[in-house]
Amino acid sequence: MGDDVSDPRVPVPDRLTLARYAGDGAAYGGVRSVVLDDGSERGIRVLEFRTGGGLRFDVLVDRAMDIGLAEFDDVSVGWRSATGFVHPGLHENADEDGLSWLRSMSGLVVTGGLDHTLFGGEVDASHYAYPPRPTVRHGLHGRVGNIPARLIGYGQEWVDGRAVLWAEGEVRQATNFGEHLVLHRRIEVDLGGTEIRLTDEVRNAGFERTPHMFLYHVNVGWPLLDRGVRFVADIAETLWQTDSVAEQGIDHLVFDAPVRSAIEQVYEHRLVPDADGRFVVGLHNDTLGLAFELVLDPAAFPCFFEWLNLREGAWALGLEPSTHHVAGDAAAREDGSMIWLEHGESRRYDTVFRFSRSTSA
């Protein structure tokens, strides 16, 4: 990108200035805990982040601490689907042949995992040594996105002279005679900042060797996603795509209008790291002068999918960094790429969500 013009309209105060001018630091920005209280969202704990730099977003504590609403300069970035942010107590985990995950899919970030991602199916479970259940059946993108977190804390702290807004929690996916995986999630953003730093660690707290798959479904919707908006990534090659790509012939690099009853289009791209050794993918809206980008660790997320939901009433672009290729669970076990965690072993994921007012290439 070109020159960054993301400076907030009000200069970011230092600690003394903030204390002198405001009895409450929330006068500039902060984190507030609320509870949603209507419809299928009723009862969900939410942490509302306001940076003072034009960025605001919601952390859905009871939905794996995923990010729901996300706005930059009052423009909605995170996709708002018709499902809303469904309370996990209403989630239909095993219904519709494993596709019921789609009934609670909304927001900027929906996490997939912790032991399964991608399409569902039945796989061997003999490693859990429980004869009554020789196999386990998974639904689309696993269970973790509909599990409430144990909130460790949230607030504002000063680090090397800058104020950091933060939240931290733990999501436990466990059953008897099965997986016991723990996701430790920390979300940070600087006061006045326009970048969200997401740090995840997934650990096997059980004593059986356990498969691990992980994915972020990062969903961008209107009005940041609009006609003429560009998908930007350094793509070495496209490894796979759905049949709908050739059948529909709809561009995946520059977007047009929603299409009646369009079939989803999915691509697996092999990305080229930038000069810092990171994958950078994003969406640039030149009309609004705004951009949204993901900065990814290739060692953690070697695979990347682009998901296009192009139909009327549900228009969205999904950016999906993944630990595994599109063939999924059974194929990963077959070709040896499945991640197996022994007791106490863990995997770490560091990702940056970058919002900018500059869209020059």
Rank of each mutant, 00 (worst) to 15 (best):
R278S: 07
L108G: 04
T117Y: 08
L181K: 11
H91E: 09
R45K: 02
A246K: 05
Q248P: 02
A64T: 06
Q156G: 04
R42A: 15
V220T: 13
Y267T: 10
L60P: 00
H284R: 10
S126G: 04
G289Q: 05
R15Y: 09
F72A: 05
G25A: 12
T351K: 08
P132Q: 11
F355P: 04
H87T: 11
V59E: 03
R185H: 04
R357F: 15
G336Y: 05
T210Q: 08
R20N: 13
E168L: 10
R32S: 12
V61C: 05
G30Y: 07
A174P: 03
G25D: 08
M338P: 06
V182P: 01
D4C: 01
N219C: 11
I250D: 04
Q173L: 10
T175K: 15
D243I: 01
H87F: 06
A300L: 10
L165K: 07
D190G: 05
V259D: 03
L140Y: 09
H217S: 07
S100W: 04
V218C: 14
W101D: 02
A174V: 15
E334S: 12
H116S: 12
P211M: 07
R80V: 13
D286K: 10
A125S: 12
V77F: 01
Y349R: 08
V109M: 14
G68A: 11
M213G: 11
R20H: 13
G277S: 10
A129Y: 08
T210G: 06
R20F: 11
S81R: 13
V77T: 01
E170V: 14
L198T: 00
T238L: 02
G29Y: 05
H87W: 06
S337P: 12
W79P: 04
V144N: 00
G84C: 12
W240Y: 13
A233W: 00
R45C: 00
V164Q: 15
S356G: 13
L310D: 06
